[in-house]
């Protein structure tokens, strides 16, 4: 005689599969964010140093502008401001785009970890008979790639911030009237501190997004493997 089927309030396994799918979707989103972060970061550093060279070129090509600026005229000041803004606008755009991708990456990872946005069951077309293993392997590959790409992005971001920080450092050194070695060490010391204060927390945020998904996936893989072993031992009599 067959026991009556358990009363089901929910299709629990199907709901879990939706949750698993959301991790894969999250891994894809984080991977895409890392890809764009990499592009924007390199765009930032090239745009920054391109901006510097553009400024130098303009002041060499139009020496009267330099003269007006040094003379402290309003025209000179306005021209300098306008030229600086135009020269460094692409750099600023790339930098903000990089920050945006880091912020969105963190948001995407948090949404996955909180279970927000899981679809209410994968349909036949999505599952196609594939189960856990192919999806996990794909998610792990994506996350590993995202981690490498994020790390690689912080080289240009750091270089760029050193470039900006050195200008700020020189300006501060100039304000205090530091000269010679004091100017050199002071200004680049300030640049280093500023870079570390901005770049390092950003790096931690960006890597944290990827790492949190990786850790969650690794733990689930371990738990599912244990469950599998227990199931096989109990219901099929075959060794794990």
């Amino acid at each position: 005689m067959v026991a009556p089927a358990p009363a089901l309030e929910a299709r629990r396994v199907e709901g879990v599969i939706a949750d698993v799918r959301s991790i894969l979707d999250g891994a894809k989103r984080v991977s895409r964010r890392s890809y764009w972060l990499s592009w924007f970061a390199w765009g930032f550093v090239f745009a920054l140093y391109g901006g510097y060279f553009a400024m130098i070129y303009v002041f060499l090509a139009y020496p009267s502008l330099g003269t007006s600026l040094l003379a402290g005229t309003v025209t000179g000041g306005l021209a300098f401001t306008l030229i600086s803004a135009l020269a460094f606008l692409p750099c600023a755009a790339f930098l903000f785009a990089s920050f945006y991708e880091i912020r969105q990456g963190r948001r995407d990872a948090r949404r996955v970890l909180a279970g927000v946005g899981a679809s209410s069951g994968a349909g036949p077309a999505e599952m196609g008979g594939t189960g856990w293993t192919p999806q996990v392997v794909e998610a792990q590959k994506l996350l590993s790639h995202a981690k490498s790409e994020t790390e690689f992005s912080f080289l240009p971001l750091t270089l760029g911030m050193i470039g900006i920080g050195s200008i700020v450092g020189l300006a501060i050194a100039g304000q205090f009237g530091w000269t010679g070695l004091a100017n050199l060490f002071g200004s680049y010391g300030i640049a280093g501190v500023l870079t570390a204060a901005i770049a390092y927390p950003l790096y931690r945020v960006a890597q944290g997004s990827v790492k949190s998904l990786q850790q969650r996936l690794d733990r689930q893989v371990q738990d599912v493997t244990e469950l599998e072993e227990q199931f096989l031992a109990r219901f099929t009599g075959s060794p794990a």
Binding site: A3, A5, P6, E9, A10, R11, R12, V13, E14, G15, V16, A18, D19, V20, L113, A114, G115, A118, S120, G121, R216, Q220, D223, V224, L227, Q230, F231, R234, F235
Partner: peptide, 28 residues
């Protein structure tokens, strides 16, 4: 039936509970 219950309980324990529509309940 026992195997289904075992699997459903185990997977729910690992991934968290879902509601009647298969959506996750609460924070993971």
């Amino acid at each position: 039936v026992e195997a289904y219950r075992f699997l459903a309980d185990g997977l729910t324990r690992i991934f968290g509970p879902v509601d009647g529509a298969g959506r996750p309940i609460g924070e993971r």
